[in-house]
Write a protein that binds this DNA or RNA. Sequence first.
DNA 1: TATACGGGCATTTTT
DNA 2: TGCCCGTATA
Length: 806
Amino acid sequence: MSFLAGLNDAQTRAVDHHTGPLLVVAGAGSGKTKALTHRIAHLIGKYGTDPHQILAVTFTNKAAREMKDRLELLLVQLLAQKQLGQSWNTLNPSHQGQLRNRIYQEITKDLWIGTFHSLFARLLRYDIDKFKDEEGLKWTRQFSIYDETDSKNLVKEIVTQELQLDPKRFEPKKLRWAISNAKNQGLLPPDVEQASEGNQNKLLAEVYQRYRKALAANNALDFDDLLLLPVQLLKQNQDVRSYWHNRFKHLLVDEFQDTNRTQYELIKLLVTNGDEPRKYSNWEDRSVFVVGDADQSIYSFRAADFTILMGFQDDFGENLQKKASNTMVKLEENYRSTSTILEAANSLIENNTERIDKILRATRGSGELIKLTRCDDEIAEAEEIVHRIRILKSTSLEINWGDIAVLYRTNAQSRAIEESLVRWSIPYIVVGGLRFYDRREIKDILAYLRLLINPADSVSLLRVINVPKRGIGKTTIQRLTDAASQLAIPLWDVISDSDAVRSLGGRSAKGILQFYELIESLRNKVETSNPSELTQLVIEKSGYLSELITEGTDEADERRRNLQELINAALQYEEESEASDLESFLASAALASDADNKQTNSDKVTLMTFHSSKGLEFPVVFLAGMEQGLFPSYRSLSNPASLEEERRLCYVGLTRAKERLFLTHASERRMWGGIREPAIPSLFLSEIPTELLQGDIPHTGGISIRRNNNLERLTRIDREEQEELNNPTLRGASNAIRRRHNNRPGISKSWSVGDQVMHVNFGKGEITHTFGSGNKMTIAVKFNGMGPKILDPRLAPIKPIENENQ
DNA sequence: TATACGGGCATTTTT
DNA sequence: TGCCCGTATA
């Protein structure tokens, strides 16, 4: 038995690649996970690589878990064959369990498989105390990991308290985003300041600097630091760098197209020990194996950069004796989808200019046509989807609820669909949205736990000091924090000074002393108890549980159930992982995503965003909300690069489907505040060849952003009408006739980009984009003091304002 | 110190 | 529309 059996030529070349760099360009559904798992098994089984020397990076925790599972299965099959001369399936279950446990103990336990964030958090737990920032900032192994909310609050505090600025003018959220962006590109505060002369950057650098200091004071890191600090550490400390370089001989990176600069820096540091990659030549016992598909790069908003993938061969190629073609393998055979679905995806993605040429070749039959439906509004759309689901379920016995996925651009779209599913009693789960670990009660308990191991963590301390209520109010807290900042010591040190606390007097002093004793007594148990026991202790001793019991409402009961679930999560963590200390459990909680919790075997319809669907596949897929301004999103319309990213996102959506694909769009959608926005079909729909579609083919033939040119518009309409008349079965000629009437000069005014308009409610505004043409035309208008609005010029209460200059 | 109320604002996408 | 945050009031 060999791990190369059952692979195609390209897959074999990838898996059998031993040392040196290799880029695997792997199209959707081309078996890249197979290539990755087989490669690891092959390295261990054939080349005798020590599992301890392998580092594999996946995009989600769930993918990591699955990879480990599949790998175990492969290895256990080999073991059964070698040792017992028997195939795995024929062994009895207890025997199977035994072998599996052996594989776990001897091999998979030692593998480092995980996301960039979890792997490098792990690395930091070993070596962070060897790091000292240029500013002298330091952290310890007990560091806390702050989530997005914690980070944002910290930035807010800096803006309002330290710098005394108006948070409306200097939005913490935007500043936090800018800092994150800088970190993901490997920039430090001085780099940001130098980036340009403007005051904007000066302020950003100032906030960034203070933020970093504040994190260090709390002995805390944000998500981005989990990547940036290791880069700094590996650059700074040669011993540390050499250690990890020698330790990890074989690196594998999945979803390489969504790697950012900082992550790439980490890979390079580990692989070449700090040498220039092009000049690096000690490849005899090591490899770097990256797998990705530039067409599926969908995370540039968090600084992912697919040009890293496109430049990989160039970066690593020069000094190799082998030809550059030996540093790339393309997997283009698709085993997932019908040829109809693939053709649609291929046609769509060809509209992008920045790509590595690659086409997915079908290995399956053509299957059914893609069904396209226009609906009146988002409620009708939801009903349509659920209606289709019910028909499918009742006519095809082989389809289970779990085979069906509904994908959409924004989380908010799930609501209407959920309501319809509930109405028809169809089981479903929503992936994404509110994470389990983001629930209030969970965050509270986790904050207690963080405080136990990291006393410097004032953010966590402040979160729980009066939860449940201990009579410690705002004024008292202000006094304590003032004292801490004046003395430049952690808040905890102020609280532990009982004399100082007593001087505060009365009620609040009592509360603080009580809190102090609670934390101290729990802290004494950290060494001797495991995470689940500690979680339970915190829930009980803090008074959190009794408060919920007293409350007795449905909501309180729900919270109690969630807390129970948290204890279960800790138990599960202890079972599954090698290191079961509290620090690691908290790290895994901080880095878990909602998608990680999704159970693959539950028989429920899955609802999620296009982004969350990456890497998954379903026999039946619905893509909802295929409308201009929603998907592609409004913000991408003015920027060609973002539009291409939206198109890639659409490509990802289409290629999730194995058998059947349904696309829906609404003619009107209630966005927020109950305002109904007219909606026109997505540009992407027009990029799918009509012969692959069935149903309400859009009239617009090709909506694109352009300056509104009358001549072009007219010729366009003529062509559309012609098509329409040639194809009466699909949508009847009456539309065309009606349109001709509506399109009389005088009724349909011409609107162009740059025109000034007056709106009854919003006031004066300027047209920034026009979409579509004729009576299907929509315009985007930017009004003073508010975001852009998409309006139907025939319905909206607007008047043109004559331009004085003309 | 805790709560109730109302104004203002929000929707991309996530480790 | 519903959620979050700040302010008024017991």
